[in-house]
Each structure stands twice: as C-alpha cells, then as structure tokens.
Design a protein around this nucleic acid. Sequence first.
DNA 1: AGGTTAGTAATTTTT
DNA 2: TTACTAACCT
Length: 729
Amino acid sequence: MSGYLDRLNAEQRAAVEALDGPLLVLAGAGTGKTRVLTTRFAHILMSGRAGPGQVLSVTFTNKAAREMRERIAAILGRPVEGLWLGTFHALAARILRRHAAQVGLEPNFSILDTDDQLRLLKQVMQAESIDAKRWLPQGLMGIIQRWKDRGLTPDRVTAAEDTDFAGGRARDIYAAYQDRLRTLNAADFGDLLLHVTEIMRNQPEILAQYHRMFRYILVDEYQDTNLVQYLWLRLLAQSHQNICCVGDDDQSIYSWRGAEVENILRFEKDFPGARIVRLEANYRSTEQILGAASGLIAHNEGRLGKTLRSGRNDARGDKVEVIALWDSEEEARMIGSRIEALRQDGHRLSEIAILVRAGFQTRAFEERFITLGIPYRIVGGLRFYERAEIRDAIAYLRLIVQPADDLAFERIVNLPRRGVGDAAMRSLYAYSRSQGVPLMLATERLVASGELRGRVRENLAELLQNFMGWRELLQREGHVVTAATMLDESGYTAMWKADKSPEAPGRLDNLKELVRALADFETLSGFLEHIALVMENEESTDADRVSLMTLHGAKGLEFDTVFLPGWEEGLFPSQRSMEETGLKGLEEERRLAYVGITRARLRAVISHAANRRIYANWQSNVPSRFIEELPAEHISQTGAARADRQQRLTTPPIFSGAFALTAARPRLAPGAWEQASRPPRAESIPVGARVFHQKFGYGTVMAVDDNRLDIAFEQSGEKRVLDTFVERA
DNA sequence: AGGTTAGTAATTTTT
DNA sequence: TTACTAACCT
C-alpha cells in the first residue's frame, strides 16, 4: 500500500498529487492514464480528504469502470464498498431513481434500448401521420438523440433548430415521444443524462445535496464527453471545483455520436485556474511506431499538442510497413500469410489484431482465415443481449415485473404465434387508448368481455393466466426457476426447437446461458437493470485467436502486431465522413488512424489495395492520403507498390462482373500459403459425428482426410472444411 | 393470419 | 452481395 506513489514517473506523480482544484490530464496513448486515475483515487483516500463514497468516478465503458475498481482495490489491498464509480449512464440511472418524480417518472422506470426506442418512435410518428417512407424513423431518432446529447429538452429546442425533418415537425414529435415515454414509465439512454442534468439545473437543493456528497470528481476519456455530460459535470463541480478530467484530444473519435472535442479544448476557460499536466512518456510502442503516429497526427489543426516520447528502453523497433496490393483478396492473402509466419515464429495469435474502418471489411479476412485454418474472433459483433431470442426472453421477464410495459407486450404477444394479428391488435390499441390502460390490462378486459373471440381469445387467456402463475412463482421460487418455467410454458423454447434453421440450436443455447446468467443476480429487477446498462460481450479470452475489429472497437486495447488494411481514399478516410462534416470529418478520420497505429507495441503493417469489391462490383482505389502523411523516416514501403502502379496504368479503372474479376486478378502461387499452415491438431472427429460450423451450421461428417473433413451440412450442402473449424454437436 | 416476394438501402456504435 | 421491410397473395 505505502509507496504507491513511487511507481509513477514525474509527470504521472504531478497528476496524482495536484489534488485540489480543476486539473486536466492530457494523456497520450499508452502513457498510463488508468494508473494515474486509480492512484489519484487512492491518494485522495490516503490524504484523508474524502471517503470512498465521496468521490465520483466516471467512465464511458463498463470495462473501464471494472478495471478501475479492480486496480483501486489492488492499490488499497482490499475490496472497496460504496464507491460512486461507473459509466455516465449507470451513475445517472442510479441518481435518477432517487429523484424520478421530478421528471414525472416512477422510481422503477424501465430503461429502453435502441430497439424499443425506434419502435416507440415509429408509433408516435404514425400517430402524427408522418410518411415513414419519406422520413425515416431512424433519421428522427438520430436528431432526437443529438438534441438529448446537447441537453435539449423539447422546450429548449428552438424553431430555427428544427428545420431539416418533416418540414419542421421534429420538435413536436420529440415532445410527443417524451410524453409516451413518461406514460410508459420509461427512459431511453439519452434521457438518463438529460433528466439528471435537468433536475440539477432546476432544483438547487438537490444539486447542493450532491455537492456535499461528491467532494472529488474523476472523469475518464474526457475528449468523448458530449454536451449534457459536460453540463452535468460542470454543475457537480461548481462548488468545490475539485474535478480531474483525463483525456486525449488526439483520440477523440466519437463526434458523430455527439462527443465534443471542444469540451477538452475549452477546459481552461471552463475551469479558471485549471492546471494541465501532460503525460507524454509512452510505455507501449517502439520509437518507429510512435514516430509514424506522431507525424501523422501533426497534420491536424487545433490540437492541444503533445509530443509522445518512448518510455521503453528496448530496441527502436521496425519501421511501420506500408504495403500496396492489387486487390482486396490479395490483401487478405498477404495478411493471412504474414500471420502464418508470425505463428511459426512462436507469436501468439492473441497478440495480433486486424483493425478495419468498417465492419464489412472483416468478411474478406474471415473467409481467408477459414481456408488457412487461422483461429480468429470478431470483437464487437452482435452482443449477447442484442440477440433476438434474448431480447424476447427479456421482454417476458419485463412483463412479469411490469405488466404495464407495453413495448415488451407488443414484442411477445404473438411470439410464439398466438394468432394475434392486425385486427386483434387494433382492438387492443383502441381499448387501451380510450380507457387509458396498458395493453395487458386491455387484453384481460377484452378477453373477459368476449370482444376477442375464437383461438385468439383462448390463447391470450392462457397467456394472461400464465403470467399470473409466473408472478406467483417468482415470489415462491425465485427468478431463476421462474425464468426457466416461463420459457417452457410460454411455448417460446418449443418455438425454437421446432425451428429448423441452422441458428436455432445456438439460440436455444443462448437461452440456457441467459437463465444461467440470471443466477448471478439477487433479484429479477437487479438483473434487468444490469442488462439495460451493461450491453457488452463477455470476452472469451481463453483461446488463442487473432482479433478482428473496427478501429473504433480497438480504442483502449493494445497488441504486439497490428494490421491496418484498407487505407484507401474513400474507405479510409471515409467518403461519407468527409462529405458530412468536411475538414472536421477528415481530422476525425486522421485521429482514427492515429488510434490504429498506436495500438501496436512492436509491429504495424498498413496496407492498401488498388481494387476492392464493394457489394457486387469492383472499384479501383487510390492510396489514402494518410499514407503520404506518414513521415518517410519511420516507414518502409514494400510489397507490390511499383508493379501495381504499372498494372493500374494498363488496366481499366473499373471492373465489373465476375469475368473481369477472374481475368484481372493476378494469380499467386496457388496453395503457397496453405502449405505453410498446419494448424495444431484438434481432437479427432470420427465419420458420422454430428458437428457444428460457425458459418455452415450443423452437419454430419461423411469422410475424414487428415485434418480435412467432408461434411454434409444440413443447410449448406456438402463442403470440405478444416477440423479446427467445427465442434462436435 | 401468416407466409412469400419484390424493393431498398447499406460507416463507425463505449451505454 | 446481403439484410431488412413493406406490400401482396393464399
């Protein structure tokens, strides 16, 4: 415990010891900002200035919050209770539950995810007779979200601001949407911050209460805060000014989601007398990598400015490689073979990442890795709680707790099929609206009155009966048993068992996993709160796999080797980004490139292809401008750069159709890469075994040839695949 | 009511 | 190309 300060360098120590008054810590990539935050927390406690419950620590991700909590416990040598440490959303929800009445909600309000949000908004738009084809609901959802990001309640939105949607009706629909949320006793993500800020703006006594409570404030990733978050922090800090924000303006990559870099650039003005400490000693990357990254980011205007220097005392490292390739498939082959080579040299696959600009780019690599037998994982795909079957199950659970949850009711009333169609729903809505009662109660009344008849009536009567039974069961047997029973009795499990699609068995597994996850919580509502706010994948870090992810998803991570494919104009920097926000967009793309390079400890390989398939057709691309911006002394241009330029001159710029593709593509020694790879033998799978493959689903092994299996897939026909890619079902 | 088909639209996504 | 939705048929 003692001597926790000794493990810091001079600048880190300065950031930790400047306890009183506003402090901005500009922490470059890999300079130990989490260490500073956690040590500062410990130092506040050790200096006796505040207790554990009097420090507010805000992060953006649950992962960051968890890491901070663990490291604080490690420094103090004991687990700490009663911390106010969490994401903006989790903390806001916690506070909002105490004061829900101030904004017209009950303390047990439910938190909607984007799916619910969109459905609700569609309904409101329909009620307002907006043509959903001309004006896309997701467009309006974006507008509303951005208003919420800026702390604008409907009454604060000016008419001048409301012009670009449905002829200036966005504000009205926003207001109607907020009304609907209130009657549903629900809040969307944006509301959590918006409501809390609104309460603190309007209720000085409540604000004062939190001033007394939080003597110190710590903020992580300050460059990513949006305006409401900023307003909220400023309100909280206004009495004592003991606010410490840590961030890096060069890593601000979420402006499209409402983050405002200006928050960090303006810090000194917002908090007069603020101290600024720069963390510039990077302990992660080699000098070459830092040199390349710094040279690139120097092209941005309006930076606070930092000069990263290597804090590592090992080798200077290899130059950042820039490799030009003919087409995207060659790029995938090149990276695949490089990874094979690294693996043969004894490098762990989990220390290798491929970082792409957009999600669809991972596909080419997946396909390549499947043929090569390189295990990979896609980070940040569909999340567990976003899967349809999980959301359905959750809707059932929500209805057990909150019979008035209309959104949940709509989701599952006809799932599995109960014969509830348009006509039945219309009468339910009509009754619900005219009597001002939730849909479930409306159902009960219409079943009783006989307005619903036939099979629908029977099925719904049974459903209502079931819900009463489950609520009782919840009291008697607890939430785990209830959930399991509910999934069976509702017919939901049976529905998936009857489904013959290849995903169905996986979905059933997910449902089992959900029931298992429920056991980790004391109560059902505790679980529901968790899933609303913690939308992350638990990572299965067990296996040694290459990571495939977007650049955005890579923030905060680091790897020995990083591949950065697709550095081409239009793709990266992205065309759309530049069209939408011009120079600002370009600079954000450049920061994204900077984030990408600085993820690498030892090796970074940038590549670009002259031709790339986008959807159905081929498109020829020029190298990204970012490549030219890399300082020459830190990069080595290798690969087919010259050859490609010549080829490009003699080949038409745009290829279309499969014929042109096969004709134009250079053929590298076929099988050359496959030869190099010999994946470690998996447990042998006998002929006749039923197996599961990620892409092809379930099948039966017909023949075995060393590590190659001929499998008759139930959905995709017969295929030959490597045994490492199937598991026994 | 429910399944089928044609049309449409496609970055990034910490909660 | 694929995935999703809205109209359309049975």
